[in-house]
Amino acid sequence: MALEIERRFLIKNDKWKKFITKKTYIEQGYLSKNIDDWIIRIRFTGKDYKIALKKYIKSFTNFEFEYPIPRKDGAIIMSNLSNTIKKERFFLEVEKKSWIIDCFKENNYPLEIAEIELSDEMEDFSLPSFISKEITGLTHYSNFNLANKPFSKWKEEYLTTFKSN
């Protein structure tokens, strides 16, 4: 069984940039229409396509199954989706922990989200100095919802959460 145990945070400054080990460009789209069911995502990283099935379980744990698909098939699927996001993903090593920073593009710019994947929900870690507010579980910050309701179209109630970081 594939489990993803992940916590997500807003970022308050650029101090994370000194920890970059690698970066990639990601475009992803969604075949699902409802966040409360299985989420079916297709992702292109510039060289390959993968399809993923995700389902919320509890707290900050999800099922996640991801499989490579042929490039031609991926391109056809992606070209027929309207709910997509684009982002640069940066991989960091901070205090022997792996972090990811997603810097969203286009309609989700200037949103930046930090993620850490954990081995279990009780795993201990310290927050780096660039971390602001935790957004784990706030569904309007999910990639699925950002593809369907981009950051640039958020109403003031969501932007208040963002600005208070």
Score class of each variant (00 low, 15 high):
1 M>H: 03
1 M>P: 10
2 A>I: 03
7 R>T: 00
10 L>D: 05
11 I>Y: 04
15 K>Q: 13
16 W>D: 08
16 W>T: 04
16 W>G: 10
20 I>D: 11
21 T>G: 11
21 T>K: 15
25 Y>I: 00
25 Y>W: 04
27 E>N: 05
27 E>T: 15
28 Q>P: 06
33 K>Q: 14
34 N>G: 06
35 I>H: 12
36 D>I: 00
36 D>A: 01
40 I>V: 15
40 I>T: 12
41 R>V: 08
41 R>C: 07
44 F>R: 11
45 T>H: 01
55 K>D: 03
57 I>P: 00
57 I>F: 03
58 K>R: 06
63 F>Y: 14
64 E>Q: 11
64 E>S: 11
64 E>N: 10
65 F>L: 14
67 Y>L: 15
70 P>Y: 02
71 R>A: 02
74 G>Y: 10
76 I>P: 02
76 I>E: 15
83 N>W: 01
87 K>S: 11
87 K>F: 04
89 R>T: 09
89 R>C: 06
90 F>C: 10
92 L>N: 13
94 V>M: 05
94 V>T: 13
98 S>R: 14
99 W>C: 06
99 W>N: 07
102 D>T: 02
103 C>H: 08
104 F>G: 05
115 E>N: 14
118 L>Q: 05
119 S>Q: 15
123 E>F: 10
123 E>A: 12
127 L>H: 09
132 S>C: 01
133 K>N: 11
136 T>K: 09
137 G>Y: 01
142 S>T: 12
143 N>I: 14
143 N>W: 07
144 F>P: 09
146 L>G: 06
157 E>K: 13
161 T>R: 08
162 F>I: 10
